[in-house]
């Protein structure tokens, strides 16, 4: 009896060792980082469903109607801004412009900057901003907002916030995230657009997404 338990425990130990070895091998073979789907999933009919960016349609700086459909459900990178914002927007826009320049040869990425200031940011003003900031990329769209209510709802889908705030510089409070959305309208990564190092990491995530097969 005693001998049996001893041999059992030895077998268990060697099994554990094997397991450990396998798991080490496994982690090394899975060096490639994969992007998770962000957001809180719901379970429906025993299927895990992740939130998606809802369909929308806005005018861009050239009065074109831009929707996820018109963009062919390609990868897009999104941020929120307004042209008279004196605080974080210039930094975020600088990052967006840097990313767009880096992937200038990739036609399957769109850059969407949603304006939160429907009162001041008319289409001609967005056009002027586009020209004078020097964005110069046909996949770069500055989108005219409808009203703050609509912007608030949209921002929530992008895990961002936006609100009117007379105390805030420029009158609008909002977050400075830059977000990565895949072909299935799932959020896959985000970065603080005011933080250069974080944006560098985000650029790595875009490359990972571009290499995904589906």
């Amino acid at each position: 009896m005693n001998i049996l338990t001893l041999s059992n425990s030895i077998r268990l130990k060697s099994n554990l060792k094997l397991l450990l070895l396998l798991s080490i091998l496994f982690t090394f073979s899975c060096k490639k980082k994969e992007l998770q789907i962000l957001g809180v999933p719901t379970i429906q009919d025993s299927q895990t469903i992740y939130p998606v960016i809802p369909e929308f349609e806005y005018f861009n700086q050239d009065s074109q109607r831009i929707s996820l459909q018109s963009l062919g459900y390609n990868i897009h990178i999104a941020s929120f801004f307004f042209t008279s914002c004196p605080t974080i927007c210039p930094k975020v826009m600088r990052s967006m412009s840097r990313i767009a320049d880096l992937f200038a040869d990739k036609n399957n990425i769109s850059y969407l900057c949603f304006s939160l200031d429907s009162k001041r940011d008319s289409i001609p003003r967005l056009k002027e901003y586009y020209d004078k900031v020097g964005l110069n990329n046909k996949n770069f769209h500055l989108l005219r907002g409808i009203d703050m209510n609509d912007s608030k709802k949209l921002a929530q889908h992008y895990l961002s916030t936006a609100s009117e705030d007379p105390e805030a510089a420029g009158g609008i409070n909002h977050s400075g995230w830059i977000l990565l959305v895949d072909k299935n309208r799932h959020l896959r990564s985000y970065a603080d657009g005011t933080n250069t190092e974080d944006v560098d990491r985000f650029i790595g995530d875009i490359k990972i997404l571009l290499n995904e097969k589906n």
Binding site: P86, I88, P90, S97, Y129, K132, V133, G134
Partner: peptide, 15 residues
């Protein structure tokens, strides 16, 4: 620095 840049480079004519 937000508008004029960390090294004063600005961004186009807007900033």
């Amino acid at each position: 620095s937000s508008c004029h840049g960390k090294t004063g480079e600005g961004l186009g004519q807007w900033y």
